[in-house]
Design a protein around this nucleic acid. Structure first.
Lengths: 181, 181
DNA sequence: CGTGATTTGTTTAGTAGTGAACAAATTAAT
DNA sequence: ATTAATTTGTTCACTACTAAACAAATCACG
């Protein structure tokens, strides 16, 4: 990995942070490139140096988070659900503004779907209908059941201002996964 | 004013912030230029682009705050003491880490003296021994009295974690100044 | 002491960010 | 529908930041 120039990293961070902040304040349609460069404290041209337009910026932002979540899944694949969930909820917490705006009604309508699809892929290998208690279930039903509930729980937790700690969430969701998979 | 390049402003901000943070963690002597550049996320060379060494950086940092405080004094010169004090304490609050580290025992020993000298200059024109109740006082005694107590109050407020709001402080110190000047 | 490791301060060639200008495309208002 | 005003996307010459290399100075410690 040819480590990226620190100026690039800083500019892109500032730009992405600016977009998230602005999306939490007004509709994506109403956000202009100038708005973003002002907020990021970056020249307007700098944005075009990295992104073709604001849609591309949003795409890449989402893509990056999906990728990060993939990394987390990878690093926790060997753990118990209870433990594996902790980094997950910690990640959600430390990116609260991103997830809350993306899941908000006027956020990024496509994000919920992408999030769902991502989880389908991740849980695909986890469902085990050979286990005794799951004999009567078909794989895809169980998979949809789990993923839908997972998305729902996350969405509820985020949009309700994270009423429980990541630890508490990891533990409880861990129990529920254990029980159903 | 030939407005400064935004890259310069950002770099210098990051560098100054880094120094303040590091000084709140360890002694100035133990801080290296590399430490600062690491913390500021800036190339080591960038520091030398703006400052000759870490002493120069500290000098300029202090000088800037003294200057800012001068601006505040200027903008409030027409107000009642109570009102004039508010921007003052708000400034102290928003630069809490700077003032608390500079006033700390192992901070910048010279800062307290510079701060004192600055206030002497600012209050010089405020003392009025022609007023009836101050007839028996000589100007320099009254001046030293006021400034010493002002520095003391600020130092106490900062090093004790700002136990009162800037508003409360501005009000009370306003009363005390009114009473003595 | 001395000597080995850090830290310093400078230089270098290369890269990213800068503001300004511009025409083209959108959007808003009458 | 015709302006007028904004926003877009691109180009440009210039400047600041970059990492890396270097010798000199300072530090640490056996």
């Amino acid at each position: 990995m040819p480590k990226v120039d620190r100026r690039i990293a800083k500019s892109q961070e500032a730009i992405k942070k600016a977009l998230i902040e602005l999306m939490s304040e007004k509709s994506f349609d109403d956000i202009t490139i100038q708005d973003i460069s002002d907020r990021a404290n970056v020249s307007r041209g700098t944005i075009y140096l990295h992104y073709v337009d604001k849609f591309d910026l949003l795409d890449k932002l989402i893509e990056e988070h999906i990728h990060q979540m993939g990394e987390i899944c990878e690093s926790t694949s060997e753990m118990e659900y209870k433990d594996a969930n902790l980094p997950w909820f910690e990640y959600l917490e430390s990116n609260y503004l991103f997830f809350s705006t993306m899941l908000a009604s006027k956020g990024a309508p496509s994000f919920r779907r992408q999030f769902h699809e991502f989880l389908i892929e991740e849980f695909k290998d986890e469902v085990d209908t050979s286990k005794e208690e799951n004999q009567e279930l078909s794989e895809d039903v169980l998979l949809q059941f789990i993923v839908t509930s997972y998305v729902g729980i996350v969405e509820w937790w985020i949009t309700n201002g994270m009423p429980y700690s990541p630890q508490a969430m990891a533990e409880q969701v861990g129990i529920l996964l254990e029980r159903n998979l």
